[in-house]
Nucleic acid binder design. Structure first.
Lengths: 228, 228
DNA sequence: ACAAAAGTGTTGAACGTACACCCATGC
DNA sequence: GCATGGGTGTACGTTCAACACTTTTGT
């Protein structure tokens, strides 16, 4: 039963997938196999099915096109310029995802689809308005990382404080003082010191820490607000 | 030419319009004339036309249904639960608007449509998932007002510091210290002292100030960041 | 003259910022 | 033994939070 008679736009979801590898913030792109923009790199995404909600659609497309699932995924913004798709009116609800690169290493292209990680300062021309979407996602990440503890989503379960600091420095595009950074984060009370240290490094091995979500919720309920 | 063959959802825009009147944060609602939810209060909104972009659609619906135009309008979030409309799959891109209540006083119902302002602590049952949308908008306003100078959109062009403080107190649901509040805001350097004072008040009249956008942009470019 | 809100400074505590050296490890 | 990054404390300046009384105006 169709009860609302109007011409309808198509609705898609697109995902900006961020990963981090010690020195770079990276994004996962796929090379389009079909027109429009055949052969051009683009964000993973696709049409929303009628029976699924938007976040489900984003998670499904991510899984189908890149094999990623179960990661941090949050709605970013909805893009709907009438001419953003040359063939038809398409509105896209963009999401961004944060994943740990070690869990999804630079994958060999499958038969079906070409997938690759690109450093943020080396992005090829993108299809549609995906450059605008990517830019919006980068700004959101930069803004949000200072007041929500989402940076940990980009790191392995256990990480060093230096890795964490590098992540902040790269995303915020700024330098941070080592002593002040450590003092501040440890004082927050939700970084759990493990009794493990780095292996396979050519210098003194650093202690590994873990983000303790339960403790974070506790301090948050006591009025603590994550900041910087 | 339809090139993407998929069943399509309908796409609407809905607007959460906030106003402020000395003692209350208010929202503009309209009473639905048609099914579904006939007679129930709802956010102003309607279908996106194929040739307009999303923000244009929101501005147009706002104008058509409430007579408001030219105000602050920003995308909020996109809601797409498959069952959010009982009759069909409808995805809605929600916007929120901030207006000065004096420019749009509590309007008499027109023949066509019943429109009314409701205080945030006295909201009737709403159609669809509009309660969720409203709640999301309130959280966004509460969050954003502390790091962007958007509170001024809710006040007249010239306002007293006490009015500004009340606005913050009500939106943040907290008490603020008068001396500290004034000192902090004046120190920001973009509140312009006019040489006018309140009229028609039964006590000492307060000085009127104005938000100077140009000066705000200047201090911002010098590295200043609005906060609290 | 009284009611109502406007306007105004100081102090102590907490926090942020700047800064440099020794230590542990692998090669 | 040397190169590499790991780990640590202090002092100063800035900002925040708490706090109460006098002034102006209208009725």
């Amino acid at each position: 039963m169709v009860t609302y008679e109007h011409p309808r736009p198509a609705v898609t979801v697109d995902c900006v997938v961020f990963g981090f590898d010690e020195n770079d913030l990276k994004v996962l792109l796929i090379q389009r196999k079909y027109e429009p923009f055949r052969g051009v790199w683009a964000l993973p995404g696709g049409f929303v099915h009628l029976e699924e909600n938007l976040e489900q659609a984003a998670a499904r497309e991510l899984w189908e096109e890149t094999g990623i699932k179960g990661c941090f995924l949050e709605q970013l913004y909805t893009f709907g310029r009438p001419d953003r798709d040359p063939r038809d009116r398409v509105i896209t609800v963009a999401y961004y995802a944060l994943i740990n690169l070690n869990d999804y290493p630079v994958q060999a292209d499958s038969d079906a689809i070409r997938v690759a990680w690109f450093a943020m300062d080396d992005i090829p021309k993108l299809a549609f308005d995906h450059e605008e979407i990517l830019k919006t996602a980068q700004q959101r990440l930069k803004g949000k990382i200072t007041y929500q503890p989402i940076g940990f989503e980009l790191l392995p379960d256990k990480f060093t404080l230096t890795q964490l600091q590098r992540l902040y420095e790269i995303i915020l595009a700024t330098g941070l003082d080592k002593r002040n950074f450590r003092r501040k984060l440890l004082a927050m009370g939700f970084l759990e010191e493990t009794n493990e240290i780095q292996t396979d490094v050519a210098h003194r091995a650093a202690r590994l820490y873990r983000f303790n979500k339960v403790r974070y919720e506790q301090v948050r309920q006591n009025g603590f607000n994550f900041e910087l």
